[in-house]
Design a protein around this nucleic acid. Structure first.
Lengths: 217, 217
DNA sequence: CTGCATTTTGACCAAGTAGTCAAGTTTTTG
DNA sequence: CAAAAACTTGACTACTTGGTCAAAATGCAG
């Protein structure tokens, strides 16, 4: 039989037991750590299994292929990662909405840098596992928000700016603090750990970008 | 004997022959392509050898370890990659100097995205091979330029802005177009290939950042 | 052209790793 | 509590891959 996970015949169609729920969660958490640190090819099933506290065959009982674990972690992460963009309110104040968005993205980079790195690594290597997602769901979402931003520009609520490049700039800048963390630390040294560092970062980033796009009369 | 490459005894101390010069160049070019596409762990010596048009043992005759090839490519790349920052003229016009710098970085991302990706991948995975370089040479260079920018701010030639975060933002944004190329393409589609796309990108990026840091009276 | 140094490679080895399997243990359920 | 289902794992296989080696081919100085 092909499917590894099944239930007693005729039972609920929802095919997960208590133990499955627990273990899949443990595995995915371990996998995020490992994959984000070493990349797909650089990670071994054994590493993930050890971090998850179980044997390799046991892990493979839940995810029969290494690819399966990877894709699942990636998809789970992606959904969460994009949500803030979706939450930009077309009827809000443009500058305020973008301030909120940038703040949120910086906070996510701070709190879950592994997610950012996992994603960055995937894209960097050509996004073999999610190119459909990029061209489909992501493009649609970005197109939508770009339209909103363009309207804001037309209404003179923002300086004339290309919406797509603005979005790229926000992504690039905010994720930089997660993806290039070691470089940031090498250059800034211990001040990265000082309290208030993240607020200071947010202020600097927001300052430049928002001043760059505020309408000039 | 430990050294693989040697010359006829007592000859010139410059230990490279004609063939060595040619082949090392070929290997390093092939290695940049392969490593930037697949990362260190994801690349095989065989891949590089094939792309270089020689057998694996032959490649290993020139670089006895996979690490050696990688580190050599990385160092060669790094030097070139940082040069534009070094070229910022402390006595030039601030806005003009930064415009030049951003333009140059965007051009490099367009013309040699592999170099950017190689570097991004290394940093993303903790920079095991170049952390000394980051904390030494790079930090020194950035500190130097940050001082210049800070002086420009003090002289009211730029709006008050944190020099380090400004530099990070420029790096992040310009390299984004190389490192996240597939994502940019997925979202913008065919217009990425239209003539003038890069000029348009430059204009958008420069527009936001420079407006963001121009002194406001 | 000769002989030595350099370059090249097929065949091989050892280590590491994805995935299998059959046999055990634990959990659930009637 | 007994049987069935779900879970767990040690031992194993097949394959990939970094690196070795000895012998052959080529380049080159005199």
């Amino acid at each position: 039989m092909a499917t590894a996970l099944k239930r007693k015949g005729g039972s609920k169609s929802e095919g997960t037991t208590r133990i499955q729920g627990i273990n899949r969660r443990i595995i995915l958490d371990a996998a995020l750590e490992v994959f984000s640190a070493y990349g797909f090819r650089g990670s071994t099933i054994d590493q993930i299994a050890t971090k998850a506290g179980m044997s390799k065959p046991n892990l493979l009982y839940y995810f029969p292929r290494k690819q399966n674990i990877y894709v699942t972690v990636l998809e789970d992460t992606l959904e969460e990662w994009l949500r803030p963009l979706d939450d930009i309110d077309p009827d809000g104040d443009p500058v305020e909405e973008l301030r909120k968005y940038i703040t949120l993205k910086l906070k996510m980079s701070e709190e879950k840098p592994e997610a950012s790195r996992l994603f960055a690594n995937e894209i960097l290597h050509g996004a073999p596992a999610i190119s459909d997602f990029l061209k489909g769901h992501l493009k649609k979402l970005v197109d939508e928000k770009a339209t909103v931003i363009r309207r804001w520009v037309d209404e003179r609520k923002l300086a004339p700016v290309d919406p797509y490049h603005l979005i790229f700039m926000i992504w690039a800048t905010t994720q930089h603090y997660a993806d290039f963390d070691v470089q940031v630390r090498a250059i800034l040294g211990s001040q990265v750990n000082r309290p208030g560092f993240h607020e200071q970062t947010a202020q600097a980033v927001i300052g430049i970008i928002l001043n760059g796009i505020k309408p000039r009369d």
